[in-house]
Simulated assay, not measured.
Amino acid sequence: MEKKAPAKKPKQTGETREDRLKQALKANLARRKAQVRARGSASTGKSEGEG
């Protein structure tokens, strides 16, 4: 019995896996920075670890 590897063609939707990962990382970083800024402005100088 012969083993044939299925022909895998990358989807040509204009975005490769690497491009999608770059976009996801960039969005994640922006979201985390926004969270840090929000926590910093809501905080009155006392960090979460203190108390």
Rank of each mutant, 00 (worst) to 15 (best):
M1A: 14
E2C: 14
K3N: 11
K3Y: 11
A5L: 12
A5T: 12
A5V: 13
P6Q: 09
P6E: 12
A7L: 14
A7T: 14
K8P: 00
K8G: 02
K8R: 13
P10F: 03
P10S: 05
P10D: 04
K11A: 11
K11E: 04
K11Y: 04
T13C: 10
G14T: 06
G14Q: 02
E15S: 05
E15Y: 05
R17K: 10
R17S: 09
D19S: 05
R20P: 02
R20C: 01
L21G: 02
K22E: 11
K22G: 00
Q23I: 01
A24C: 01
A24L: 09
L25E: 12
K26Q: 14
A27W: 00
N28W: 06
N28K: 12
N28F: 03
N28G: 04
L29C: 01
L29W: 00
R32I: 10
K33E: 13
Q35H: 10
Q35I: 13
Q35N: 11
Q35C: 08
V36G: 00
R37Y: 04
R37F: 01
A38C: 00
A38H: 00
R39S: 09
G40P: 00
G40F: 06
G40W: 02
G40R: 09
S41Q: 13
S41I: 15
A42I: 12
A42L: 15
S43M: 10
S43Y: 03
S43V: 03
T44F: 08
T44P: 05
G45R: 03
G45V: 02
K46Y: 07
K46P: 03
K46E: 10
S47N: 09
G49E: 09
G49D: 07
E50Q: 14
E50N: 08
E50C: 08
G51H: 05
